[in-house]
Design a protein around this nucleic acid. Structure first.
Length: 382
DNA sequence: AAATCGCCCAACCGCAGGACA
DNA sequence: ATGTCCTGCGGTTGGGCGATT
């Protein structure tokens, strides 16, 4: 089997053409058989076939795959054409080896989405689901197993501590070690973040979520735009209906703390809408639908975050960490107020004693009674 | 040098869900 | 309401190719 890659000429040629989403009304009127059994070529694509497909998509855009082979003069089924385009010929595909950062992202995303390769691919610019799936099965899975980590559950295959890495040479493994260390030591800062996120999560109501989905809202995209032309077209359409396509622009977002906090306190009773967008929010934040559901339904002060929303496992927590690290923490005892940059705080030991006393649009107030029965509190400005 | 083995990855297969007639 | 078609997804296959014997 001879595989050849699209030439630079092909790619640059493609980039010079706008790709329009194609909706062929005629093909809906007169339907053609799904796949002709005879005369269809299978196997590796030739350069000539690639060229035909590229030229066709340049002029007609993606879509209409069923009728594309005939129109483009290809002896292939539409499915094969779509796959060839999506996995190989598309101009925005990044080829070559996966970086450590990409591998780490894949592992993180796999922990959230499982074998939802398309969902993972949407968050990795230029990588296809097929490529990620292959890389996972041939490389990452083996590395995790070698380290004693179950690729399915992302948990250690061994019991007890200190069982981890024999291979400290990669960032992936370093991160895994850090992660294990955090878990085993029960990092106080992680617990703080969990508590804060828990309280923040409680305040996220459906109007905030609808803001997020409707107009970009308080969440700002910074990593991965939709990768295909059709997705770009969809995501910029004027549809007011919440959709995964709209959300693609907001995935892997940074949280804009000010706008988030200013909009998270309004109320609404439209729970139906809430249900419809749980899946989307799950994608965006890394919180499970179950957790989000609990966030909505619980009003008790002792609400606890679920395991899957802990620091190591969610993009949300990572973003929250970034916010807190870039902000300041105030330490005050009665009328004595000290302001300390959060990243200069030596330790969060004792943070378990704190209660999330209040959340305003600007601050999260943590308070506790110390051993001397003095009231102490920490206020994180958001 | 030839045969064999195992890895890699592009391509295929079958299924599911949504849209439309 | 039902059937058909279209598209996308995850799992699997099989051919190329380098490494090993």
């Amino acid at each position: 089997m001879i595989h050849h890659k699209p030439t630079i000429q092909n790619s640059s040629l493609l980039l010079s053409f706008p790709i329009f989403s194609h909706y062929n009304q005629e093909s809906r009127m007169v339907r053609t058989p799904c796949c002709r059994a005879e005369g269809l070529k299978k196997g590796a694509w030739t350069q000539e076939e690639d060229q035909k497909l590229i030229v066709y998509v340049q002029h007609h855009g993606e879509g209409g795959w069923r009728t594309l082979p005939d129109k483009a003069g290809l002896k292939r089924c539409g499915k094969s054409c779509r796959l060839r385009w999506a996995n190989y010929l598309r101009p925005d595909i990044k080829r070559g080896e996966f970086s450590h950062e990409e591998e780490d992202s894949i592992i993180e995303l796999h922990a959230i989405h499982g074998n939802k390769w398309s969902a993972i691919a949407r968050r990795l610019a230029g990588r296809t689901d097929n490529e990620i799936k292959n890389h996972w099965n041939t490389h990452i899975k083996k590395r995790l197993l070698k380290k004693g980590i179950d690729p399915l559950t992302h948990k250690s295959l061994l019991d007890g501590a200190g069982k981890s890495s024999d291979h400290p040479e990669t960032s992936l493994e370093e991160d895994d070690q850090k992660s294990n260390n955090n878990k085993s030591s029960g990092s106080p800062s992680a617990r703080l973040l969990n508590r804060v996120a828990s309280r923040l999560g409680k305040r996220i109501n459906h109007s905030v979520l609808s803001d997020i989905i409707g107009s970009g809202g308080p969440l700002i995209s910074h990593i991965t735009p939709p990768t295909s032309a059709s997705e770009r077209e969809k995501s910029t359409s004027s549809s007011s209906k919440p959709s995964p396509s709209n959300l693609l622009n907001n995935q892997n977002m940074n949280l804009d703390a000010t706008s988030l906090s200013s909009s998270m306190f309004s109320d609404s009773s439209d729970s139906l809408m809430y249900e419809n967008i749980f899946g989307d929010i799950e994608d965006m934040t890394g919180f499970s639908s179950r957790f989000l559901s609990d966030v909505v339904s619980h009003d008790d002060e002792d609400f606890l975050m679920l395991d899957e929303s802990c620091l190591e496992n969610t993009l949300f927590m990572r973003d929250l960490t970034m916010i807190l690290q870039g902000d300041k923490i105030e330490t005050k005892s009665f009328n004595d107020i000290h302001v300390t940059p959060l990243n200069e705080v030596d330790s969060f030991e004792g943070i378990d004693n704190y209660n999330c006393q209040d959340i305003t649009s600007e601050n999260i107030l943590l308070s506790y009674d110390d051993d001397d029965e003095n009231l102490a509190s920490k206020s994180i400005r958001i």
